[in-house]
């Protein structure tokens, strides 16, 4: 059984068919990249898995449990966290308050402070700035905060939506290094990216999403050499 199994997922925004029945799976311990152009349905896929958007048809099985009828706020405590597109940190709250909200569903105080130390190890910058308002952080720091906040729930799988968006190349490299590190420490990663090159370089497997359907899938390194992918997404 896969950790996360998406089957024939169909999503509509009014009359617009955003996802036309996509099927894919994520195994425990993997980094899976979901790449595709703007408007292909990448964010919609993540939001549907997290329960923010209702699906019309299909199923999302997480560790053998159906998520389609589960309200969004209950999915977090099942072990799934999302780093949303555009960071969406709570700008008026401090860095520490943001991180504490990430552990909202947890009750074990000692466990929470252990995870907090862990997050500070990944992102020493956040520790330095813990009393600062999140809105005053730079884009890269906010991305780190959004990732740290998601890790605070101690998820078994973390969904990341465009973590490289709007960041300087230096930050992009740092963020991707940390994603690999998070994965090595046992968290499965489902990564949505427009930066296909970067995403494929750290992923085990990848799916290519095109206007609501999966057009290609396979081993990430093989996809990197695929002529179609090269032309459409790698700019070669």
């Amino acid at each position: 059984m896969s950790m996360l199994e998406i089957k024939d997922l169909e999503v509509y925004y009014g009359a617009i068919n955003a996802l036309k029945g996509i099927t894919f799976s994520v195994e425990q311990g993997e980094i899976i990249a979901l790449i595709g152009a703007n408007g292909a349905g990448k964010t919609t896929t993540l939001h549907t898995i997290s329960g923010l958007i209702p699906a019309k048809r299909g199923s999302v099985m997480f560790n053998g449990k159906e998520l389609m009828k589960t309200p969004a706020h209950k999915i977090v405590s099942m072990g799934m966290a999302q780093v949303p597109e555009g960071r969406r940190v709570f700008a008026q709250l401090s860095v520490l308050e943001n991180l504490t909200l990430g552990a909202y569903t947890r009750k074990d105080k000692r466990g929470i402070s252990e995870t907090l130390e862990r997050v500070y190890e990944y992102f020493p910058r956040l520790k330095e700035r813990r009393t600062q308002l999140a809105g005053t952080l730079s884009g890269g720091e906010q991305q780190m905060l959004a990732m740290g906040r998601a890790l605070m729930s101690k998820p078994s799988i973390i969904l990341m939506d465009e973590p490289s968006m709007g960041l300087s190349p230096l930050y992009v490299n740092e963020i991707f290094k940390i994603i690999e590190e998070i994965n090595k420490n046992g968290t499965t990663v489902l990564l949505v990216e427009q930066n296909a090159k970067k995403a494929l370089s750290i992923a085990n497997r990848a799916y290519v999403l095109e206007t609501g359907s999966i057009s290609l899938s396979g081993d990430a390194h093989e996809l990197m050499d695929n002529e179609q992918v090269k032309k459409a997404y790698l700019g070669e």
Partner: peptide, 24 residues
């Protein structure tokens, strides 16, 4: 309090609050 912080989070970004596991 935790419930109070959840209120602040909801007032800033309802979707992000849901992703924290807050029952909006």
């Amino acid at each position: 309090t935790k419930a109070g912080k959840a209120m602040l989070a909801c007032s800033e970004d309802r979707g992000a609050a849901q992703l924290m596991g807050i029952n909006v």
